[in-house]
Amino acid sequence: MDLSKRNRFSFSEFLFVVPALVFYLVFVVYPLLGGIFYSLTDWNGISPGFNFIGLDNYINLAHDEYVLGPLWNSVIFAFVSMILLNVFGLLFAVGLDNVAGKSFYRALFYLPSVLGSLIVGYIFSFLFTVPFSEFGKMIGWEALANNALGDPDLALAMGCFVATWKGVGWYMVIYIAGLQNVDRSLHEAAIIDGASAWKRFWSVTFPLIAPAFTINMILSVERAFKEYDLMFSLTGGGPGRASELLSMTIYNESFTNKRAGYGSALGVILFLIIVAVTLIQLAMLRRRENDIN
């Protein structure tokens, strides 16, 4: 067979990719470049003119408390919800392994994941305001009795809790799929060898669910950085700005405070964070997988 001929670029073949490429270029790449462009301007988002101000927006935001607070909130939110989602997701998956009514529980635990974040936030906002606070009064837990969402020290933590309630099923399902690869006889053998439960988990189970672990870590962090709806409907970023996430700041700067240029600069920062987090995690976890194998 004439390989060189077959390696040649074929236009008819390329046509197959064109629709996806066009929509992708128009609705993802162009706006991204536009965002980077506007981040170098002082555009207010509505008037026809703007000035090109170079990197001023980036220099300003480096010491702008107004922005650094939400940025830090986003980092905490991403870190805590990553831990909670993965720990509980894995625990649920392992716990469901030999429970009667396994598929019932699995279906139930996954249920919140199909709901929209917005509605989950609204419902929990109500739950914290009335039933949880009544419950708090009953057991004498003051933080809860006074509506934890109204406490600047707790609002973000409660956001993590609600995000976990909503998302844990998703991560559980992926861990269950990973655990199905684990060979039971290998486990039994390890038991007979007298390996401790921890050691069994670490040396037998974990290597096999490592791919699921990798993807779950990346996805949970990425989603947390992109979260908006949940916090918007749960706390609106309050009290004060104690639970405001970077995504909300971007939206508010761009549209409420009419600083589209500055908002875009924040957007670029968010993009860079996600790129960095993804690359670091990929590198770290791939290495771990290699070490274990």
Binding site: S125, F128, T129, S133, A145, N146, N147, A148, L149, G150, D151, P152, P239
Partner: peptide, 11 residues
């Protein structure tokens, strides 16, 4: 009321 921070307009 000390729990006012957690109250919404409904409260």
């Amino acid at each position: 009321s000390p729990n006012c921070l957690g109250m919404d307009q409904n409260g």
